[in-house]
Design a protein around this nucleic acid. Structure first.
Lengths: 218, 218
DNA sequence: CGCTCAATCTGAACAGTGTTAAGATTGGTA
DNA sequence: TACCAATCTTAACACTGTTCAGATTGAGCG
């Protein structure tokens, strides 16, 4: 079959900023990850297809297999970056406050904020069956994100390690469940900015209820 | 095109206990719902396909459309029954105990127990994009399940309606998040009975931490 | 500089999916 | 009994992920 000189499908500027080689892409891994994240952002987790990611990267449907094996491999890489971003957001939220309770509150808000701002990515991060669930780097990234919680919770509880683990599981469960239910529209619409702000206020009340300010007991 | 007498594909006894008519199934709706629930139980939410459900019911891939429109329609019906079962489980759990706190604890355990025993069904119930999310009966069933929580929570909190709503959101978020995280293996393996029992014990501690017995404060 | 070779990517195919349209079959009812 | 609306099938379409043989290429080595 004929060659296409230099351009062709790979020309929309969505895939590369650098010149543009022909047959060999050069940065296909990154291009595929970026394309996947774009799809997740636009269409959500259910909208992702491997072929569409390849299309956006300007390569054939078979190209991704050489870099990621299969769709799960690509999505695993996307999930890892998602966990990294989440962990960073949690650390940033805690570092801005002082006092364990304030840090935990800030982290809870940051967790749900992350989920509402990146629904597709968030859902994919927790869609084990679409990932290589036993991938070492994925498990590490997931644990690192969870660890950002535990450090703050340990500071708050100050009891035994077991108590800290229980409290961390409680905190994680609450914000994770709230985020999931919110994304499934159980707390009202989440597609407009106003609805999201209202949901964040509800979350604030929930956190205040479960972790009341010292002095205010129920 | 020839006919097949009376039997053929529809002969494994999986679809009907009654005689067995030929062209017309007779109870196709129920057969398709039962087949779908079986698939969800065996393969999880990701394993469901409309064609496989039709196959198990002994009909062609196009047959379901006449009863449910499309796959979302069928899954919506499955989800409705799931919510009904969940609501019933929550009511039963509460009715066995006395004292609002004990009722809430029992409901929380029942909620996660339901999720762990029927993972596929549970995941599908909350997979909005695979359902007809604005179906009136679905929303009603979902609300009814949530209501089973709210009544008990209201009894426990005893404050204003707004406070009760906040507390209900907190309780639902916690158990839902715990169930979701458990199903994604974040609290250890969930595929064997032993792992599940350990997870339920962790949940018990979490609930005790967030809703301590009156007298034991933190 | 010229060659080779491993990495990269394509093309074509396969089995599977959900959905639709047109036609066959049938049970209830007028 | 004859019809008709409900029910189901067949066939097709546009997708999907994955595989495999082969084309293309850049980088390193002689």
């Amino acid at each position: 079959m004929k060659k296409q000189g230099s351009s062709g499908k790979r020309s929309a500027g969505l895939t590369r900023s650098k010149p543009e080689p022909g047959y060999h892409h050069g940065e296909l891994q990154e291009a595929l990850i970026a394309a996947s994240e774009a799809i997740l952002a636009e269409q959500g987790a259910e909208g992702f297809t491997l072929r569409e990611a390849a299309r956006r990267a300007g390569v054939s449907p078979a190209a991704p297999s050489h870099h990621f094996g299969n769709a799960q491999g690509l999505l695993t890489e996307v999930a890892i970056r998602g966990y990294d971003a989440l962990a960073e957001a949690l650390r940033a939220a805690a570092s801005g406050k002082q006092g364990a309770r304030e840090k935990l509150r800030a982290q809870g808000l940051a967790y749900v904020d992350f989920a509402l701002r990146h629904p597709g990515r968030f859902q994919m991060m927790f869609a084990n069956k679409r990932l290589v669930a036993d991938d070492a780097r994925l498990k590490q990234a997931s644990r690192a994100a969870g660890h950002a919680f535990e450090t703050v919770v340990a500071e708050l509880v100050g009891g035994t390690a077991k108590e800290a683990k229980t409290a961390a599981a409680a905190a994680w469960s609450t914000v994770h469940g709230f985020a999931k239910l919110a994304l499934e529209e159980k707390f009202g619409s989440v597609r407009n900015e106003g609805g999201r702000r209202e949901i964040m206020m509800t979350l604030d009340q929930v956190l205040n209820y479960l972790w009341p300010a010292s002095g205010a007991r129920r």
